[in-house]
Every structure is written in C-alpha cells, then in structure tokens.
C-alpha cells in the first residue's frame, strides 16, 4: 500500500467515524423531537429540525470532500 493510499484509508476511516457520530446526534435530535411533540411543545421540534438539517449539510460536504479526494487519488 502506497503512502497516498494509506492516507486515503486513514481519511476515509476518520470521516466515517465523524459522520457516524453526527448521525447518532441526529438520532438523538429525532428522539428529542418526538418527545417534544408528545409534550405538545411547538418550539423544540423546529430547532431540532434545523440542527439536524445543519448536521446533514456538514455530512454531505464531508462525503463530497472525501469522494473528491478519492477521485483525485485514482486519477494519479
């Protein structure tokens, strides 16, 4: 395995862990939303949805970055 490939593997693993953690946070936000809905609380679900959307955007950008990096390595 070349150094660049090794770097790619490390990058993929790290981003995998990062995205995994943010998905767990999103699941927690979803649980908080359901909890707030059952308590007839209108404010919390909106903020939780915005935070969840923000995390998805971050995840999406990370995925785009890592696949772009992967493509660059394959081209060389």
């Amino acid at each position: 395995m070349s150094t660049r490939q090794s770097q790619g593997t490390t990058l993929f693993t790290a981003l995998l862990a990062l995205i995994g953690i943010s998905v767990v946070v999103q699941l927690w936000l979803l649980a908080a939303t359901v909890d707030a809905l059952l308590r007839h609380e209108a404010g919390t679900p909106l903020y939780a949805a915005i935070a969840s959307g923000g995390l998805f955007v971050i995840n999406g950008l990370l995925v785009l970055y890592v696949f772009g990096f992967d493509k660059k390595i394959k081209q060389r």
Binding site: I19, L27, L29, L30, V34, D70
Partner: peptide
C-alpha cells in the same frame, strides 16, 4: 468504507427529513 459512508450519508438525509416532517406536524 465507501459503502458505509454512503449508507450513513443517506441515513443522515433520512433522519433530517423525518425531523423536518415531525417539526411541521404541530403547524
């Protein structure tokens, strides 16, 4: 790892979508 990253990204999209739908219910 690539498949797992794609799976997590799709999962992230699904959860965010579900959260927005749930947030819209009271309104």
């Amino acid at each position: 790892r690539r498949e797992m990253v794609k799976f997590l990204a799709l999962g992230s999209l699904t959860i965010a979508g579900a959260n927005f739908i749930l947030a819209g219910i009271p309104h």
